[in-house]
């Protein structure tokens, strides 16, 4: 049996850690939310500013998770599998890249490199020196069954822990959810990893 040890939601108006609001504000545009979280974490990471919105949010989500649960940083470099999904792949950056060359313009290399959704996994791996398993999938809706089944598979097979994430940026709306799974109920949240539990905490009910 594996357990969800911590989880985090980011929206335009709040950050919630383990279901409890840790920070709430007047609803802000995406870039301002990103900036506020980045400043609050006091990070000095110059590569951050080069990322697209999807990568920035994923990066910050994992930083918030690490802050809330320092256990995450104690795992070995091969131990943590990264399992991420969303509904629109890298569409927001795809549109920007397409605009760069439409009408005879020069295609932008720095936009093109973010036109794959799994780049956000790369950014997290680079930041944390995590060499574990990677997988990015695209699904219409948050698929708790997939995450629960596949996180359990990876832990049984080779990983010690799984960091899962669901990140969508749509128009000016952020929807992001992250969760951390290990073999033990370290934080005594009493949340065994299964479809029902994961769906419940994702929806916040």
């Amino acid at each position: 049996m594996n357990y969800i040890n911590s989880y985090c939601h980011i929206s335009n108006s709040a950050i919630k850690i383990n279901g409890t609001i840790s920070n709430s504000y007047e609803a802000m545009p995406i870039d301002e939310v990103i900036k506020a979280i980045y400043l609050s974490l006091d990070l000095k990471y110059s590569k951050f500013h080069k990322m697209d919105q999807l990568s920035k949010i994923a990066f910050l989500g994992i930083e918030l998770m690490k802050q809330a649960n320092p256990e995450i940083s104690k795992y070995g470099e091969n131990d943590i599998a990264l399992l991420f999904s969303n509904s629109k792949s890298s569409a927001a950056t795809d549109i920007k890249f397409q605009e760069s060359y439409a009408n005879g313009g020069i295609p932008s290399p720095s936009l093109f490199v973010y036109t794959l959704p799994n780049i956000l996994i790369g950014e997290i791996a680079i930041r944390n020196k995590w060499y574990g398993e990677n997988m990015f999938t695209v699904s219409n809706l948050f698929d708790a069954k997939y995450y629960a089944e596949y996180a359990n598979i990876l832990i049984k097979k080779s990983a010690e822990a799984v960091l899962g994430g669901w990140i969508n940026v749509n128009e000016d709306k952020i929807e992001a959810f992250f969760f951390f799974v290990t073999k033990k109920d370290l934080k005594q949240l009493n949340l065994p990893l299964n479809t029902e539990t994961l769906d419940k905490i994702y929806k916040g009910v």
Partner: peptide, 29 residues
């Protein structure tokens, strides 16, 4: 389909082949 790059194709597969489970889409470069 710049804005919804894969959804239509998956819905079409599910319908055309009468699939019981929604296909899993892996997009990892």
């Amino acid at each position: 389909n710049l804005d919804t790059p894969i959804q239509h194709s998956i819905e079409k597969l599910k319908k055309d082949y009468n699939l019981q489970n929604t296909p899993l889409v892996i997009s990892n470069a």
